[in-house]
Design a protein around this nucleic acid. Structure first.
Lengths: 185, 185
DNA sequence: CCGAAGTTTCAATTATTTCTGAACGAATTG
DNA sequence: CAATTCGTTCAGAAATAATTGAAACTTCGG
C-alpha cells in the first residue's frame, strides 16, 4: 500500500529531525544526526544518493557529512560485492560513539589550554605582592582543574564510569585569599 | 611598576581566551568563558564596565553575557553597600556548573524528543510485514535509549557519578533482524 | 585509453549566530 | 525634577558556519 510508504517516510523524517536536534544541542551539526538516523533506521546499508534523496540534501553536503560521521566512528562504510557505489551503515555501539567524542574533546583541553595557562603563569613569576600572589594561585587552581578533568575524562573513556566528586572545591580559594563583597542573590 | 601591570593584563587575556576556547568546544559562546575567567581571576567582584574594558566588549554584549552566565548559575551578582553599580563574581563550585548545564540539556531530550519518537512509532502501528516490524523495533530501541540516557544523566546530576556501561548494546539489534552487507573498514 | 558512474572538493551563496551602538528606561542624586 | 549614571534591549552590521552546485577527480568496465 502506498499509504504505508508515505507514513514511513514521515516517521523517518520525524525521527531524523529529533535525533538531529539532540545532537545539535550537544554541539554538532544537525545534519550528522539526521544522516545517522536514516542509516540506523534502514534495514540495509545505504548509498549517499539515497540519503540525499530521503533527507533532501545536496550530494556535496551528504559527502561532507558522511566523512565527518566516519571520523567520529559513528558510521561505517560497507562493501557490497559487485556494486560500484559505496554503502554506509550506522554504528550501533553507542558507547563507542560517546567515548570517541569525549576523548576528542579532551585532547583539545590537554594540548592547547595547558600551555596557555602555563604561559600566563610564567608572566607572573617573581611578583611578591599580595595581589600577584593571589592571581598566581588562581591560575594554579585552573591548572590543577585541568589535571583533574583530564584524569576523570580519561577514566571515563576507559571504563565508562566517571566520578566528578573531586570537582567541587577545586576552584574555590582558601578564605584567606578571598576579599569579596557578600553575595546578594 | 607598570611593567607588572602590563604583564598581568596579558596573562589575564591569555587565560580568558583559553577558557573561552574550552567552553566553546563544549557548545557555548566563547564570551561566556572569557567573562567568567576575568571574574574568577579577580580579587574582588567586578562591574560590567570593567569587564567591557578588560575584554574589549561592548556594554550590550557584556550585559547579555552576564545574564546568560547567571541563568547557568555560573556567575552571581553581589551587592556592595553604598555602590550604585552592580558587581559580579564567579561561581567557583565547578560541580554546580556542570550539573546545571547537563540537567538543562537533559530536559531537552526529555521533553521534545520523546514525543516525536512516540509520534513516529504511532504512524507505523498495525503494519505486519517484516520491514515495518523491523522499523518499529528500531524506533523502540531509540526510545529505550532515551529512557536509559535520562536515568543515567539524572543519577549523574544527583550523585556526580555516571556509569555508561548499560549503553553499549542498547541500539544493537538482534541478529535475526539484521540484514546487512559486511563492514569493509 | 575512453566514457560513465560515483565521489570529493571548493568557491559562491545562504543561513545563522553574535556583536555593536544607540535608544530607552529605571534609579539616584543634587 | 532635571541631570547623570547604569543597565537592558533590539535593529542592523559583522562575523561564522552550513549548504549548494558545479567542476575536478577517481574508478572501473569495455
Amino acid at each position: 500500500m502506498d499509504d504505508k510508504q508515505e507514513r514511513w517516510l514521515e516517521a523517518e523524517l520525524l525521527v531524523a529531525d529529533a535525533v538531529g536536534d539532540v545532537i545539535e544541542h550537544w554541539g554538532f551539526r544537525k545534519a550528522l544526526g539526521r544522516v545517522w538516523s536514516v542509516l540506523y533506521l534502514s534495514d540495509e546499508s545505504l548509498a549517499a544518493a539515497e540519503l540525499a534523496e530521503r533527507l533532501q540534501m545536496s550530494a556535496g553536503s551528504v559527502s561532507t557529512t558522511l566523512t565527518e560521521l566516519q571520523r567520529w566512528s559513528v558510521v561505517h562504510r560497507v562493501f557490497r560485492a559487485g556494486e560500484r557505489r559505496e554503502y554506509y551503515e550506522a554504528e550501533t555501539d553507542f558507547w563507542k560513539m560517546i567515548s570517541k567524542v569525549v576523548s576528542e574533546r579532551e585532547r583539545f583541553v590537554t594540548r592547547s589550554v595547558r600551555e596557555r595557562l602555563a604561559r600566563a603563569s610564567q608572566l607572573l613569576v617573581g611578583a611578591r605582592d599580595a595581589g600577584s600572589r593571589a592571581r598566581i594561585e588562581r591560575i594554579a587552581r585552573l591548572q590543577s582543574f585541568a589535571d583533574v578533568a583530564e584524569r576523570v575524562i580519561d577514566t571515563f573513556v576507559r571504563s565508562g564510569r566517571a566520578d566528578f566528586g573531586s570537582f567541587s572545591d577545586l576552584l574555590t580559594l582558601p578564605r584567606a585569599l578571598m576579599n569579596r563583597a557578600r553575595r546578594s542573590d
